[in-house]
Design a protein around this nucleic acid. Structure first.
Length: 290
DNA sequence: TCCCAGGTCCTGA
DNA sequence: TCAGGACATGGG
C-alpha cells in the first residue's frame, strides 16, 4: 500500500480488496451517504471523509496523512490480508459465488459505544430507517463537526448526552420503542465502563454473556457488536437475511437461528464473521430466499 | 389495509 | 425451556 497526499486528497494505491460500495453497503455501518458521483461520505471518529475508487486508486477527501495513519488505517482494517481470508473460505460453491460478488468487503473497526447503540436501534427495523434514526440522534445530541459540500455533519452523540437525555427527546428521533433502551444502555455503559472497554481482551463467550445483560441486546445484536467493534471474528450473527440465505443454501428451512449460528461457526471457524458479511451482502443484493 | 424490517421482551404453559 | 404476541415507525 502506498499513500500520497495531493492538494485536496489522499491517494491510496497498491491496496487490494477495497471496494467502497461493498464495504459500506454490506450492513456493518450506518453513517454513510452515497453521493451523486458514487463516492461515499462517512462520519466516524468525529470526522467527515469522502471515499471513492477510480481505477485501482482509492481516493480519500477531507483528510490528511496523519489521520490516515492514526485513524483510518485501523478503521478500514488495512493490515488484514483479505486474500488469505478469501482463499481459506473459498471451499464450497456457495461461498465462492458470495465472495466473488462481495469482493472488496472489509470489516471495519468501529467504536464500541456507537455499535452498541446502533444495533439496539436495528432491532425489528429497516436499514434506511436505522440510518435515519442515528442521523437524527447525532443532529440532536451530537457535536457539530463541520460543513462539507454544503451539508452539515454531526458526531455520534457522547455516552453522557444520551444517558442524560429525556425519553421524549430520543423518541422524537423516531427511535420508537427502542428509545428507553438507548438511554438505559448508555447509563449502564457509564456504570460499567471498566468492563465494556475491556471486552476486547475477554473471551467471546464472556463478551456475549455480558452484552446480553442489556435491555434490547439479544443474541443477534450482541454478536453484531462483538463482530463489528470487538474483533470477535468467530461469530456468525443470524438475522432475517442470513437466515434466509442459509436456509436456502446450507441448512433445512426448519433450522432455528441458534442452530444456524452454531452450524456456521463450526463450518467457518475463526472466519465466521467474514463469511457472514459475504453472505449477507450476497443475499440482500440478490434477494435470495425472499 | 396488511405485512414486514439486520429482534427482543414478556407472558403463560 | 419455548412458542406467541407486543412493540414504534414508515415503505411497499
Amino acid at each position: 500500500m502506498k499513500v500520497q497526499e495531493k492538494s485536496d486528497r489522499l491517494i491510496i494505491s497498491e491496496q487490494s480488496d477495497f471496494e467502497p460500495k461493498h464495504i459500506f453497503e454490506c450492513g456493518q455501518a450506518f453513517r454513510w451517504e452515497k453521493e451523486l458521483d458514487n463516492s461515499y461520505t462517512i462520519v466516524a471518529n468525529k470526522r467527515v471523509i469522502n471515499v471513492s475508487k477510480l481505477n485501482d486508486e482509492i481516493i480519500i477527501k477531507n483528510s490528511n496523512k496523519e489521520d490516515f495513519n492514526e485513524i483510518w488505517k485501523d478503521y478500514f482494517d488495512i493490515d488484514t490480508d483479505y486474500s488469505q481470508i478469501k482463499s481459506k473460505l473459498n471451499n464450497d460453491d456457495i461461498m465462492k459465488k458470495a465472495i466473488e460478488f462481495g469482493t472488496g468487503i472489509r470489516i471495519l473497526n468501529q467504536q464500541e459505544y456507537e455499535m452498541i447503540i446502533s444495533f439496539i436501534i436495528s432491532a425489528n427495523n429497516r436499514i434506511p430507517m436505522i440510518k435515519k434514526v442515528i442521523s437524527n440522534l447525532s443532529k440532536k445530541f451530537g457535536d457539530f463537526i463541520q460543513e462539507y459540500n454544503s451539508k452539515k455533519y454531526y458526531s455520534f452523540p457522547s455516552i453522557e448526552r444520551l444517558a442524560n437525555a429525556d425519553v421524549e427527546k430520543v423518541a422524537e428521533c423516531k427511535a420508537g420503542f427502542r428509545s428507553e433502551r438507548i438511554i438505559l444502555a448508555s447509563q449502564k455503559i457509564i456504570q460499567d465502563k471498566d468492563i465494556v472497554y475491556n471486552l476486547k481482551s475477554k473471551t467471546y463467550d464472556e463478551g456475549l454473556e455480558y452484552l446480553k445483560t442489556y435491555k434490547g441486546i439479544g443474541d443477534k445484536v450482541a454478536n453484531c457488536i462483538l463482530l463489528f467493534s470487538m474483533k470477535q471474528f468467530a461469530t456468525f450473527p443470524v438475522d432475517v437475511w442470513v437466515r434466509r440465505v442459509m436456509q436456502t443454501l446450507y441448512v433445512p428451512n426448519t433450522a432455528k437461528d441458534l442452530e444456524i449460528r452454531k452450524f456456521a461457526e463450526n463450518k467457518f471457524k475463526d472466519l465466521s464473521g467474514y463469511a457472514q458479511q459475504y453472505l449477507f451482502f450476497y443475499a440482500r443484493e440478490n434477494d435470495i430466499g425472499k
